[in-house]
């Protein structure tokens, strides 16, 4: 364990690269999922009596340009000066808001719909529209806040599997562990030491990445300091154990890297980090609930956003995965030990 920590401190570039990876994933992937901001948005409100412009401006999603002439507004839309145009009509009997888009970019259309729905249903009390929205557990956080716990769980997987896999396979192929594992209880000691060291190292990298990215991107880290530490450690331990099992099975760095990368991306997509699990097919929901990243993501949401989650259940599932993986790794290595 001491050897591992010394080795880690001797490789500052590796440490820096790991933190950079964390920052990039949390910041850039988070940005992509959280959606576009400051979209130029045209507003034609001939009565000038709705405060829609103010409310739209308040959300960083839109940058509102007010028009007094509808034809000029449509021209600007056609020339891509604005991404959409809202025509607000308030009369004695009802209010209507017509949204006109250029129509060639479904991704932008979705972003506009999401942003507008939030503004029109929650903020604009001066427009009487037949759509309202309400929440059972109203939370004061943005989409960015919501995706970051999922990305933290994904980072746990990336950092833990990368650290444990590379170091384990290098040590194994360089035969540095041979003397240690051949002594009584040596294998158990190596497994425990390696898993704990990687858990600790990767956790420190994740915390640093989260702190730096939180300052850069301004998402909610929450006040539950010990909760974040606990969930990080349990998640790291779980993914370190899984990484160790894969390292024992795959044996070479090249195969290991490829497998872990492909698995990581698949896990991210299936575990509700980008698309909510509830919105996926039954098969995908089942897969998500069988795999650990979903539970890690849920536990992170609980501690970072203080949303209602089944925290104990999530932690138990992660621990079960950790124990199972560690047991498989132990059995596999026990066989190899016998060969040695």
């Amino acid at each position: 364990m001491k050897k591992d920590i010394v080795q880690w401190t001797r490789r500052p570039m590796y440490f820096m690269a790991s933190i950079l990876l964390g920052i990039l994933i949390i910041a850039v992937v988070g940005n992509t999922i959280a959606g576009a901001t400051h979209m130029p948005f045209g507003l034609y409100d001939p009565s000038h009596i709705s405060s829609l412009s103010k409310h739209l401006d308040q959300t960083s999603r839109f940058q509102v340009i007010n028009y007094n002439n509808f034809d000029i507004a449509k021209e600007d839309l056609a020339h891509h000066k604005i991404v959409a145009l809202a025509y607000v009509n308030q009369n004695l009997l009802e209010d209507t808001v017509e949204i006109i888009t250029e129509g060639n970019n479904p991704l932008i259309d979705d972003q506009i719909s999401m942003g507008l729905l939030a503004v029109l249903t929650q903020k604009s009390s001066d427009l009487s529209l037949p759509i309202k929205s309400a929440s059972l557990f109203p939370g004061n956080f943005t989409l960015r806040d919501f995706v970051t716990p999922g990305l933290a769980a994904y980072m746990c997987y990336v950092l833990a599997s990368m650290n444990i896999g590379f170091s384990w396979i290098y040590e194994w192929t360089d035969k540095t562990y041979r003397q240690i594992i051949l002594v009584p209880n040596g294998l158990k000691s190596v497994l425990i030491a390696k898993s704990l060291t990687v858990t600790f190292e990767a956790s420190v990298i994740l915390w640093l990445s989260l702190c730096i990215t939180s300052l850069l991107c301004g998402f909610t880290l929450g006040n539950n300091f010990w909760g974040i530490i606990f969930v990080t450690i349990i998640s790291m331990l779980c993914f370190s154990s899984i990484g160790l099992t894969f390292a024992c099975i795959l044996k070479t760095i090249r195969v290991y890297t490829m497998t872990v990368t492909i698995l990581g991306v698949s896990l991210m997509f299936v575990s509700g980090i980008i698309i909510p699990v509830e919105a996926t097919s039954y098969g995908e929901q089942l897969a998500a609930k069988l795999l650990p990243m979903y539970y890690s993501s849920e536990a992170f949401k609980g501690v970072m956003l203080n949303v209602p989650v089944n925290f104990t259940y999530d932690i138990i599932v992660l621990l079960i995965w950790a124990v199972l993986s560690m047991s498989i790794a132990y059995m596999l290595l026990n066989k190899k030990q016998a060969v040695l």
Partner: peptide, 14 residues
């Protein structure tokens, strides 16, 4: 509650 505020807004500004 449904129409008075709207009528006030439109008649006072128009």
């Amino acid at each position: 509650s449904k129409f008075y505020p709207r009528w006030h807004k439109l008649f006072s500004k128009g």
